[in-house]
Design a protein around this nucleic acid. Structure first.
Lengths: 199, 199
DNA sequence: CCTCTTGCCTAAAGCATTTAGGAAGATGCA
DNA sequence: TGCATCTTCCTAAATGCTTTAGGCAAGAGG
């Protein structure tokens, strides 16, 4: 019986392809086994279980995304860097929706620490060097930027902007304009606001 | 054999509870049937299939969220309205993580149109009446606000901010300060930016 | 009381997950 | 080359979720 040459890496990569084609939620051990024309149980020599597969796809996506981010930031600063980096997220999500969904998988702390997640935060911080923010404000800005990138991209991917004019493209450009302006004049803390009771 | 009094509504509600307890992905027909101490097949008189159940939970969550948003906006304007509305999202997501995850479910266009999604967009637009934005800019701002709310909340829920100081609470407040400032001086479109080729 | 609708049941088939243990191909060493 | 060993992939089987088909009985209406 000819060997298929399974490795954890090849399985992960194929799982990522599958995620992009049929959605991350539909990535199963069985589906990957079918793509290699191999019995399901064979995969368990390389993967602990199906959660293990999903986690590996998530780590792959985070690493790919970080690599692209680093490439985009090279030689850029200020708004140029901001826009280039933001587009990396958006383009990646559009090219690889399954992988992007995988990157949102909740990882346990140990796994998260070993992931490329830290590189993302570092790169966002690097963008902020082009602006004049105090140390604690940088952290807030990092989080706001992350929120906008992730939020916009996932709402767009979920079809949230697809049924109304103007098109998402323009809103994206204008949102980045707005973020750039915001970072150039980052406001002082406002007065305390009343927070309504949930209920 | 005593009847359990199953209805689509009760099943949906119980499914939502279950989602909050064990995660939206773990809501299954079987699990809900167990909660009612009823055989699995019995649920198929009330639900078309498990996707139907998930969709109904999503619609429930969107409606609840819209109701809370409307309550929060009543009698408020400007930054006060912005903060109150934003906190509705964040509080709801923290109180009901499973429901919040459900609200992110991708709905087919017909279902989405019949959902409370439109109310959300309307309310966000209402907030912008407290600021001075041209018509097309309002749409961009609606999308940016939606992105920040959703993005921040889901990153926080995914534990993205939990392993570094300062705490998420403060970043949230400062992000809302920043959005308020941004809306008060919404920038003109910037110059064209180079968009790097994905690859 | 009888009938009919409805609500919940049993039964069964299909598919995904996971473990246990076996056989054949690749590898290393004499 | 021949043998031992390890790795890779296999069969088999248990478990659980999904979904459909068909049946019986509880409760409503006449």
């Amino acid at each position: 019986m000819a060997r298929a040459g399974l490795t954890t890496e090849r399985l992960t990569l194929e799982g990522a392809e599958l995620a992009d084609e049929v959605g991350f939620d539909n990535v199963t051990i069985s589906a990957v086994a079918r793509r290699f024309d191999v019995k399901v149980a064979s995969l368990y020599s390389h993967l602990r279980n199906s959660q293990d597969l999903r986690t590996r796809i998530a780590l792959l996506a985070l690493a790919e995304l970080a690599d692209r981010g680093a490439a985009a930031l090279a030689g850029r600063a200020g708004k140029d860097a901001l826009v280039a980096f933001a587009n990396v997220y958006r383009d990646y999500a559009r090219e690889h929706p399954g992988r992007y969904a995988a990157a949102q998988l909740r990882l346990d702390p140990a796994t998260a620490a070993a992931s490329a997640g830290g590189r993302h935060a570092q790169m966002t911080r690097a963008i902020l060097r082009g602006y004049d923010l105090s140390e604690p404000d940088q952290t807030h800005a990092v989080r706001l930027l992350g929120s906008v990138f992730h939020g916009f991209v996932s709402l767009e991917l979920a079809g949230g902007f697809s049924h109304s004019a103007p098109d998402a493209e323009e809103s994206w450009a204008r949102s980045l304009d707005a973020l750039d302006a915001l970072l150039r004049s980052w406001p002082e803390p406002g007065p305390e606001q009343h927070v309504p009771d949930p209920g």
